[in-house]
Design a protein around this nucleic acid. Structure first.
Lengths: 136, 136
DNA sequence: TATTGTTATACTCTATAACTATA
DNA sequence: TATAGTTATAGAGTATAACAATA
């Protein structure tokens, strides 16, 4: 049976989630993907592109396009690292901060709505199981 | 935190799973995707392309390419439906049946290995939670 | 008119290889 | 030589629009 297959379940749950969170983020003019990038870049220290790429699990060439898009929306700025001028430290702009805060809020709300069939304890359980699988 | 986000977890668990099952299916010259198509098409009744597409949750134009690929490997055959000649009923060949049986076996084994961090009960739990979310 | 399969086309996500500027 | 970022390019996977054959 197809619905027994983990791959099928993961794919379609993810598709559905992406659709639902994408809808609530659209008014902020960011995708779920871009919000994830802002989340990584919004930490206490500015990161170089490849550091951010590693955290996201994407290629450095993919990172270039992601930063391009965010910079085009004036949510981040590239600034050469004075200590190593090959590197771009990516800083969030004021607007980037605002979008990160508001986006995180509506994203979290959409995720809870998406998981409405589960209670709080089951949601924790689901995430915990997935985390354990991911760690090998 | 990024690892708390369901989207991140789903995506990376799926990527990792695809990689692992893809590796064991490679000797059979099918992808996990193609095996899923064979699974749907391998039921008791031959299906038209759009019926199969609906079960897989893909577009009918995508289905054309999927069937093309499987037909190129001589795992399926298109036969016009005598009752409605607009339709192609897609039949598994003898070789398609063999690949389906053997592929299902190695795929299931790879999936269990992938989930080695969980016991049988937790695997059931994980799938059950995902199924409930998918049903809305 | 409507539907099945098809083709052409395009868009997203991803990665590989080659380039540049720095180290 | 080696590394960070970039560009060009290509490959999956997906979908929309238009078409042919059939209903």
């Amino acid at each position: 049976m197809l619905h027994d297959r983990l791959g099928y379940l993961l794919k379609h749950v993810q598709l559905s989630l992406t659709e639902q969170t994408g809808a609530v983020l659209a008014p902020l003019d960011v995708t779920g993907r871009e919000l994830a990038v802002l989340t990584v870049l919004g930490g206490p220290e500015a990161l170089a592109q490849q550091q951010a790429a590693a955290k996201l699990g994407v290629d450095r060439t993919t990172m270039v396009d992601l930063v391009d898009a965010l910079q085009g929306k004036q949510l981040v700025e590239r600034r050469p690292d004075p200590a190593d001028r090959r590197r771009n430290l990516v800083h969030l702009t004021e607007r980037g901060r605002q979008v990160l805060v508001e986006g995180s809020r509506v994203h979290a709300r959409a995720e809870r709505e998406f998981l409405a069939a589960l209670d709080e304890d089951e949601i924790r359980q689901l995430k915990s199981l997935l985390q354990r699988v991911l760690k090998e």
